[in-house]
C-alpha cells in the first residue's frame, strides 16, 4: 500500500485548559473516503478542527503529502489542498450566494469554474444573488461543499453534512459524495448517521473520549456491527 495522503499520529489537542484529543492516529489514502464515527463529544469535530489549525494548541504530527500541518500557518493549510466544511456550514450572511462560492481563493489547478459548479448544483445558480443564509439548510450544505470544490480542494473535511436534513436531501448529498469520490477526491467524513456513512465510506474509525478505539475497512463492517451498535447506541 502506498503512503497515506493524510497521516495523523499521536494527535493531542486542547481547548484552553481542557484536553480534548488524547493521541489520535488515523490515515486517509488518496481517493479514499474515511468516516469518523463516535458519540457526541467523542472528539470527531475536534479532530477536524485540529487538522485545519482552528485548534492551535496541539501536539503530535499531521502530515499531508509529507507536509507538516502543525507548522503550517492556518491560512496556508488550504493551499496544501484541504477544504473544510464546518458543522454549522459557515455560510456568510453578508455575502450573496455567488460571493460565498467565490470566497475561498483557488488553491490548485483542479479549482472548478463557477460554470462547472452551477452545472453540478443547478439550484445554486437560480439563487446566486440571494443572501447566503436565506437558503434552505440543504442548499446551504450544498453551497458549503460547492465552495471548497470551486477552490480546488483535494482533501475534503466534512463535518456532519447530513445533520438536520430531510431524507431526500440526505440521499442527494450521498449521490454527490459518490460523484466526488469518482472524481478521485479524498474525503474525511464525520458522521453520526451510520446508515448514510456505510454507503459511501471505504474505511471506518470509531472515536471515544478523544481517541480512536478501533478502525476497520468497509468489508469488515458486518463483523463489527454489534460492537458499533453498543458504542453508538443506534
Amino acid at each position: 500500500m502506498p503512503d497515506p495522503l493524510l497521516s495523523v499520529r499521536g494527535l493531542k489537542a486542547w481547548y484552553g485548559e481542557s484536553h480534548v484529543l488524547h493521541g489520535v492516529d488515523l490515515d486517509v489514502h488518496r481517493g479514499e473516503t474515511v468516516t469518523l464515527l463516535g458519540r457526541n463529544g467523542a472528539g470527531k469535530t475536534s479532530t477536524l478542527r485540529a487538522i485545519t489549525g482552528i485548534i492551535q494548541k496541539r501536539e503530535g504530527s499531521i502530515l499531508l503529502d509529507g507536509q507538516d500541518l502543525l507548522r503550517t500557518p492556518i491560512h496556508r493549510v488550504a493551499w496544501s489542498g484541504i477544504g473544510y466544511v464546518p458543522e454549522e456550514r459557515g455560510i456568510f450572511s453578508s455575502l450573496s450566494v455567488e460571493e460565498n462560492l467565490l470566497l475561498p481563493p483557488a488553491v490548485s489547478r483542479e479549482a472548478m469554474s463557477l460554470d462547472e459548479i452551477y452545472e453540478l448544483f443547478p439550484n445554486l445558480y437560480e439563487r446566486r444573488s440571494s443572501e447566503g443564509t436565506k437558503l434552505s439548510g440543504g442548499e446551504q450544505q450544498m453551497m458549503a461543499m460547492a465552495r471548497i470544490l470551486r477552490a480546488g480542494a483535494r482533501v475534503l473535511l466534512l463535518d456532519e453534512p447530513t445533520e438536520g436534513l430531510a431524507p431526500v436531501l440526505i440521499s442527494r448529498i450521498g449521490e454527490l459524495l459518490k460523484v466526488l469520490k469518482k472524481k478521485g477526491l479524498t474525503i474525511l467524513l464525520v458522521e453520526q448517521n451510520f446508515r448514510f456513512a456505510r454507503k459511501i465510506a471505504d474505511h471506518f474509525y470509531l472515536m471515544e473520549e478523544g481517541q480512536i478505539i478501533i478502525s476497520f475497512p468497509v468489508s469488515e463492517l458486518d463483523a463489527h456491527q454489534e460492537m458499533l451498535h453498543r458504542h453508538l447506541g443506534v
Partner: peptide, 8 residues
C-alpha cells in the same frame, strides 16, 4: 477563523 481556514 473560517475565512482564514479557506486560505485568506
Amino acid at each position: 477563523t473560517l475565512v482564514q481556514v479557506f486560505g485568506v
